[in-house]
Design a protein around this nucleic acid. Sequence first.
DNA 1: AAAGCTTTTGACACCGGTTTCCTTTTTCGC
DNA 2: GCGAAAAAGGAAACCGGTGTCAAAAGCTTT
Lengths: 339, 339
Amino acid sequence: MPKSNKTPTINDVARLSGVSKKTVSRVINRSALLSEDTRTKVEAVIAQLGYVPNPQARALALRHNFLLGLLHDNPNAQTVLNFQEGVLDAIRETEFALVVRPVDRHSPTMLDDIRRFLEQQRLYGVLILPPISENDALAQLCLEMGCGYVRMGSAMLDDEDHIVASNDREMVSQAVDHLVELGHRKIALIEGPEGFRSAFERREGFMAAMQAHGLAVLPEWRVQGTYRFESGMAAATRLLEAADRPTAIFASNDEMAAGAFHAARLSDLKVPDDLSIIGFDDSPIAAHIWPPMTTVGWPVREMGRAAALKLIAPDDPAAQAFRFPAKLVKRLSVAPPRA
Amino acid sequence: MPKSNKTPTINDVARLSGVSKKTVSRVINRSALLSEDTRTKVEAVIAQLGYVPNPQARALALRHNFLLGLLHDNPNAQTVLNFQEGVLDAIRETEFALVVRPVDRHSPTMLDDIRRFLEQQRLYGVLILPPISENDALAQLCLEMGCGYVRMGSAMLDDEDHIVASNDREMVSQAVDHLVELGHRKIALIEGPEGFRSAFERREGFMAAMQAHGLAVLPEWRVQGTYRFESGMAAATRLLEAADRPTAIFASNDEMAAGAFHAARLSDLKVPDDLSIIGFDDSPIAAHIWPPMTTVGWPVREMGRAAALKLIAPDDPAAQAFRFPAKLVKRLSVAPPRA
DNA sequence: AAAGCTTTTGACACCGGTTTCCTTTTTCGC
DNA sequence: GCGAAAAAGGAAACCGGTGTCAAAAGCTTT
């Protein structure tokens, strides 16, 4: 009987079942060359002892551990959490665990910090969320360090094995189509900040969609924001002061769209009667303001699951997915234009 | 010269600096009994090689790893992320990493799932966020498994070493005082759901504060919600139908308060002129609805930092803190009652 | 200069798994 | 029934660190 107050090891299992360590190891790893007899015998002992292999020991012997890292910087909290849930869906029945690492995009030492982190933890692979997922130097770093990676992005920033992407252009297109179908012709855009791939994609998608409908976008109908609430408010304020006022606004994310709601209220404009607003992300705030916001949502959780599978089970059919469809969530912030 | 394509190990360092493994180990661990000479010599080699100790090997030898776990279930996303940031503040310069594990409070196998998780990962310690932090069986489980733990709670659910707590009663008291100072006498409460310690504390705090001011709370001024947006909406709708309508509402969290905003609008009541609303949590939604919501916030990030320190550096002065002050965030959802 | 301390260092076993390589047993064709 | 090939299982080394304990070195003291 092994000392009862310690957790059992492979040696205890081997001794009790009268086989060698190696045989127990074979059982654990479902090795094919094993007689049915010994397998069941050993499995019985494992169950009886409640033996669980020590992941640190395995990690040492296998020269890689069972840790996935999640690198993120300031996207909205709900997205991060949904993605985490997705990753967990993928690893739940495995021995993998998820290590999170918020990083500071603005720190000059970010890349060095991440390098130290990777060196120290020797992760099996990392998942990188936008906006830092757009940093190619970071992907390069992972490659150099022999650390697997998958990025989440708003376009095909990388090849299929290394990305789970939304198709932002097409998503924006859906939003614009919706507005146009309702009769809007004067549609304004609140863009995201320079340097964000997502902002770029959404702008391009917007312009393309408008052009496809043969609609003009006046220069004063395009204002840039920072993805933050206040910037959306400021941008919308400017839009509403335009000589030829737009009847609808597409904002590149929900937070700015919420700011636009706020601006409309300050200008005594009712949403959606006087102004339709449509956001992007389907974050919680979209459902919790008044009126509930129509927005474009992406399947973040599924993307998290697929991203994790790409690393830990690349042959799983679900790991093949790399481009994810979005859907327009229709709520109450959009209506036909007045007049 | 060690094979240049492999990461250097302690053996490489030992060989190159002409000392034994053990001596290198002493350098790494800042052992006191070491001559200054050897220390600098070995440190030079370490720097030159870019050697980083393998955490899995250390974990194996030390019989404990350097992983902190974060168990959480459905509090608002921003709280989870802020807490994570706090934990990271604590572990940034250490070799610890943070493993996250969302759990499902409603699953009958939750406790077993967590047990398996702890068995498998052999965490150094776990941090438990509300509401599951209120589950005493879970704390008991950690104890049994020899896994350190710290809970975050709305009251002293546990002793000082195992908790970072807010003082919800006192926090609610601040909110009530604020309303009373402005002249409100008829203040309603939207409670959280049965079985949540936080809901209990906030209710008790509310009742005590009202009593302290000599104010009555009519039965129809107390409605229970589920902490969700819709429930806040429903609760406020009922409150606004009361024969003697309250002039102010205190909601036990921001999400329900946001629902109350919504209900007020449906009843054509203006916030704050016709109805003052005050929330709890200072979640992002509070700042992003119109009008911006007055709410009570707690220092989640600091709590995360302290919680992590309690586990990894209990002697650090910052690890001693266990009760955290809240502050009232005054925005625009509160005004003196009309008439 | 020898004895007696204290400080510094190293040899070796060990943590709990996996891998390599070799031996033993079983199976099977003839 | 025999020999060969295949299957099953074990011994020992190894992954990269740390703990124990004893030896070596340095420093006083007499």
